[in-house]
Design a protein around this nucleic acid. Sequence first.
RNA 1: GCCGGAAUAGCUCAGCAGGUAGAGCAGCUGACUUGUAAUCAGAAGGUCGAGGGUUCGAUUCCUUUUUCCGGCACCA
Length: 633
Amino acid sequence: MIRITLTDNSIKSFDKPIAVLEIAKDISPSLAKATLGAFVNGIEVDATFIINNDSNLKIITDKDNEGLEIIRHSTAHLLAQAVKELYPTAQVTIGPVISDGFYYDFSYERPFTPEDLILIERKMQQLVEQNLPIKRIEITRNKAIEYFASIGENYKVQIIQQIPEDQTISLYSQGNFTDLCRGPHVPSTGKLKAFKLTKVAGAYWRGDSNNEMLQRIYGTAWRNKDELQNYLSMLEEAEKRDHRKIGKQLSLFHLQEEAPGMVFWHPKGWVMWQIIEQYMRQEIEKDGYKEIRTPLVVDRSLWEKSGHWQNYSELMFTTHSEKREYAIKPMNCPCHILVFNQGLKSYRDLPLRLAEFGSCHRNEPSGGLHGIMRVRGFVQDDAHIFCTEEQMEEEAIKFIDLTYKIYKKFGFEDVILKLSTRPAKRVGEDHLWDLAEEALAKALKNKGLEYILQPGEGAFYGPKIEFTLKDCLGREWQCGTLQLDFNLPERLQAVYFDKDNSKKTPVMLHRAALGSFERFIGILIEHYEGKFPLWLAPVQLVILNISEKQIDYTKQFYENLKNNGFRCEIDLRNDKVGYKIREATLQKIPYLLIVGDKEVDTNTITVRKRDGSDLGQMSEMQLNDLLQAELNQ
RNA sequence: GCCGGAAUAGCUCAGCAGGUAGAGCAGCUGACUUGUAAUCAGAAGGUCGAGGGUUCGAUUCCUUUUUCCGGCACCA
């Protein structure tokens, strides 16, 4: 007798070993139909898995996240099967689930084209219609290697050779196609109803750029057609928020061939920049930072001392003059240490927080550039905190607080935190690493923040916390950073005198909240879809006359608003008001002020918001109050 | 940097089989004096990213190159 305990704690008994799917049938035919897999005693298995002993059972359907993952993983296999049928000489490699879908990497004699994608997708549909059963087989390593070697799947052979000896090797077969896989998978191809291949791209085998480049096909898969459609519509919507597109539409900035990866800021974009910079300046001053300014072009000897010349040279722009070689600074830290080193420093001077809106240039690989998010010339809201080992944690907490406050002001509540710890290649004593990693972890825990631990991902000179925001397409961009540095202060001989008059090397914290102005503004554009809050909007108000008769009144009103400190534009063009409203709305200006005879007679203006809502007529005073209230929120 | 794709008027885009280019919007000129997301008319605007080649002839085909786009790698 086998007793199966279900999730509601009810127990079903069977007199012989039984498959999950049979149990589901026993519960209800509709459940059986929806069954994609199961957890048996907490272990994820196929629907065809046969239970031999008393067990706990949780059936996975497409309602569960695991169910969706199974669908996506099985769709990746379906893709591989279709590719093998259409292009038998292609070799399969790996095909994992990713957010919203899956990909599969193939080795093939030529890249796949968008036309191939159409054919492959059609073939996938056919295989779905055939509703092929998907079967699991467990075999020995040697047999598996023998099998894949015999059909020329060399990558699979490599993969199996790296699976630990004690792990069972499982294969999944559907039709003529057999793939190495841990599973689980849907019981048959007919369960895959809503998928679409999205793009082809090159990708390195095992993610190493020294290896062969494979052909990667990306796809998305969902529970049903509606979900798929929603996802595709969401992508379309997201595209409209693209900062490159909006930046052009609102004339905030442009990029051009003559200066790849460097931004030409237009008047409106630069207004935003200045607003942000001034806000940041005000915030860091409150937090005890001292703002400084250091040179952009610095002699090679400094970069040799700092180690950048040896380790970072590919990324540095260099120049020379009168037999001397210079580098355009890729970062501000060495210069900040030079400022620290001026005059003697006492422990009483610490923590010393030196801040700079520092213009940096890095010769990033051409393929990595992306709009204003990843550029070669950028300005960091940079600062370096020189402190003692004991002060690290408190400074970390202070910075986390500051960063969250700033993000909140800009409307970001959703921040991904990552803590990266010591890599294999590193400098600094282990006890210092212990101390530093603990300081950062404690700071995060102290604030009650969730974070992703990235072991071994720290810089060679110290651990770090990264603050990551997402763009409209779900791509993650690191903005803020907090890095401890045990290396540079020592290399550049930064010292302070401690209580006992001994010379000590300070710990240095690199930190930036926005990261770079360029990236942060890019994210702001996408976050707000160009509809910036009043305090950030480059143009806050536009005042429109209806006909020539109101020109004088309109001009006067405009002057008054400007004198009151509002960023206001005036549109006196001889066009219909509907036309002017359309244009101002497309420019996403928060408030449109309309002046006709009615307003002139009553000494008012009519206020319309960019969302189309009509706030009616109001006096200049009323408008002022309304705007001030919004700015003070 | 690697794989693939793209580059045509200020902007968004046509131009699918080689015969030196089209539209809409914007801009300009004129008319209209307008009440909440596009008034009408007219003229004008491009060595089709750059270099080289094939051809009687290249925006179109080939090649080199630059930049951009999608991934990958990178992001001490």
